[in-house]
Design a protein around this nucleic acid. Structure first.
Lengths: 226, 226
DNA sequence: CTGACTGTTTATAAACCTATAAACAAGAAT
DNA sequence: ATTCTTGTTTATAGGTTTATAAACAGTCAG
């Protein structure tokens, strides 16, 4: 069992030298600084990472954090909002539905853009922590993805190769197999530390081609069962 | 944000009534009882879940746990071993490579058996917690899956539709897209609480058919790129 | 230069958590 | 019944964490 890295609490290289007093900042700037550091800190140590360690990382004292966030839960909530709401890109939906480009190209571009945001260790760790805790913000993200990405792509897949109409739950589920497979790549690379053997862009390209060939083939059992 | 359930520590419904003394047990039986309860406890609260809460859940006092496990880390390690090593089924490999059955049937049977073990909330939660912490036991599971399942199936997929030979990293990665998609279903159902709209057996059957049609189609871009 | 405002630190309370040692008590052996 | 073994509890040490209150100090207004 590998030991978890010990949360840095003490001083720097020279134990005799006390850390200097932190420079004064405007409230907005300090709050922002704490929030950004908290994302990294909680990603590294989980949400049980102490406020003391966070303060040390910032070069300030621990009680200062409580001047900007009422409680640790408040800080954690702010981290969730920043990561999830701040991570969402409105362009994504437009990118997927822009029919001036071939669908293959759109899918590849979308997944490269999407994974650029979410395949970051901090993002994925906070995603995992929030899902484990069953928090609402996590369900919000999931619902948002299904509403603004998954179902749109199902629409496009129909438009490309089949007749139009409202998307069935079956089609959604079939597409989740693909989307989940892509997502899993990120977990393997960033969390499971079992690095994939091909780079992300190659993986995405091949996966999209595989997906489309399944639809375009026409005779596949899968399509026939929908 | 939904509140995390508070770790039960106090007494039962009647606060005036002290909990009765726990019945004497044989060491084996008590140790086993603690271990089973610890799996549920750590799944619910993470590994920072206190030994006090665990003891309360068991109806014993907290120091008793330390008679059966030298330290909390010891207990956690025992939980890992039970969940991961105890969860692995040797039959899985045989099931996948048994060429007296058609591959389609083997794959469906395997994934139903495999997911019966790992698509349990406790299993997935322990899996997530251990991966977040980057523990060795997690990598062991991952390597075992790749060695005894993924690569075997890649072999079989070749045997079914193409010439034999040693499996390339590219084929492994292509297969992870599928395996990851299946696994993701479990997360959605048990962790993300975003229940899929079709039952597991239907999802597995359709997914396997989709996979095989991609290979059997022969002309798919994906196969041609391998 | 002086005073006021407020960002930062010091000091510390209160809760909780792991772990140990000694006391207690349930059941088996005699 | 009495004694012995050992499973369980009581008591508690020592460390860590969140959070509050009061003291301190940098900076701007006058």
């Amino acid at each position: 069992m590998s030991k978890p890295k010990k949360e840095a609490v003490g001083a720097g290289p020279d134990p005799a030298e006390l850390p200097p007093r932190a420079k004064r900042r405007t409230p907005d700037s300090r709050r922002e600084q704490i929030l950004e550091a908290a994302i990294l800190h909680f990603a590294e140590f989980g949400f049980e990472g102490g406020t003391q360690g966070l303060a040390t990382r910032l070069g300030v004292t621990q009680p200062l954090i409580y001047r900007y966030f009422r409680s640790k839960d408040d800080l954690i909530k702010a981290v969730y909002d920043r990561v999830f709401i701040g991570g969402w890109r409105n362009e994504w939906t437009a990118l997927v539905t822009d029919r001036t480009k071939p669908l293959r190209k759109r899918l590849i571009e979308f997944y490269l853009a999407y994974t650029e945001v979410i395949f970051q260790r901090e993002w994925l760790l906070i995603y995992l922590h929030s899902s484990i805790k069953g928090l609402d913000i996590h369900r919000w993200w999931h619902a948002f993805v299904e509403e603004h990405i998954i179902s749109m792509i199902c629409d496009e897949l129909r438009g490309e190769v089949r007749d139009r109409g409202s998307i069935t739950p079956d089609e959604i589920e079939a597409y989740w197999l693909f989307h989940g497979g892509i997502t899993y790549y990120g977990f393997r690379r960033e969390i499971y530390r079992a690095p994939p053997r091909i780079p992300l862009d190659v993986f995405v390209t091949r996966s999209v081609d595989s997906l489309l060939s399944g639809y375009a083939g026409g005779g596949g059992e899968f399509a026939s069962q929908l």
